[in-house]
């Protein structure tokens, strides 16, 4: 166990360190969510004028919930890019050779993803508050919101690690991000679920990300809804993606 922890700590440290010292890695993960927040909360604010849109804290908070979860998911995606890059450069093979407990590598990358996302989360929350976001939820609700973000980040990071380890090339980037992107955008991003119509409504109803997004919005509004369901779904997702990542690692081990 101790060896597992050492490996995980080492890999996580490198991941966070590289993010902090390299603007090319850090800036996209900060800028993208900030611009999504600006574009959605700012550019689409008139959406809240449509009949039956009744989210009390306002459209900025409504969009913040989405951007917060999206940044958590993309924190994991960006880590997947880094894993793929490590395989392209040969560094990952060095890791496989050196690490006494290779599953610690996955844990390390996941921890690194969490570290990276926490930086982003602080920045976008500060930006949203500065833009006048209303938060009606109390301390416990905020802890719940952060918990949802952490779980989302974990699942996404494990998914991304798995793909990157299976394909072991930077060209895996599209395959890593596309499913995450689609799942997130097929949730009720711009309006509440009941205001969606057509095929998007049908898909969003079945999309597990919808429950998480509604839970996040409920926690910000101080009227929690579907929180337990969301945590259960995210925990199930994390278990599945952990198995996926482990299989990816085994594939990388076989490839040598």
């Amino acid at each position: 166990m101790r060896r597992f922890v050492y490996v995980a700590k080492g890999v996580a440290w490198r991941s966070v360190h590289n993010t902090l010292v390299s603007p090319a890695i850090l800036l996209p993960s900060l800028i993208f969510p900030l611009f999504f927040l600006a574009a959605f909360a700012g550019g689409l604010s008139r959406i809240s004028d449509i009949p039956n849109f009744d989210y009390k804290p306002g459209y900025t908070a409504f969009q913040f919930a989405f951007v917060f979860l999206q940044s958590a998911a993309f924190g994991g995606v960006f880590t997947g890019f880094a894993v793929a890059r490590d395989f392209d450069s040969g560094f990952a093979r060095r890791l496989l050779l050196t690490a006494p407990r290779r599953s610690g590598i996955i844990a390390g990358y996941a921890l690194g993803a969490l570290g990276r996302w926490l930086i982003t989360a602080v920045v976008i929350t500060t930006a949203a508050l500065a833009a006048g976001m209303n938060v009606s939820g109390g301390g416990i609700e905020i802890v719940g919101l952060i918990g949802l973000g952490i779980m989302m980040n974990l699942g996404s990071a494990l998914w991304a690690c798995g793909v990157a380890m299976f394909l072991r090339t930077e060209q895996a980037g599209a395959l890593i991000q596309m499913p995450v992107f689609i799942v997130l955008f097929l949730a009720p991003v711009y309006v509440p679920l009941r205001l969606l119509t057509g095929w998007v409504h049908a898909v969003a109803r079945l999309n597990p990300a919808t429950a998480t997004l509604e839970a996040a919005r409920g926690l910000i509004a101080g009227s929690p809804t579907k929180v337990a369901l969301s945590f259960a779904l995210l925990a199930g997702g994390a278990v599945l993606t952990a198995l996926w990542a482990r299989r990816g690692l085994a594939s990388a081990e076989r490839a040598g």
Binding site: F53, L196, W199
Partner: peptide, 28 residues
């Protein structure tokens, strides 16, 4: 293969936003 992502991505966004933002047409 490299053409697929640039071709699909805008279409996916179009498909999703085209439907998900349908409510925007109700804005005066």
């Amino acid at each position: 293969g490299l053409l697929v992502f640039p071709l699909l991505f805008p279409l996916i966004l179009f498909a999703i936003n085209g439907s998900a933002l349908g409510a925007a047409t109700k804005i005066r």
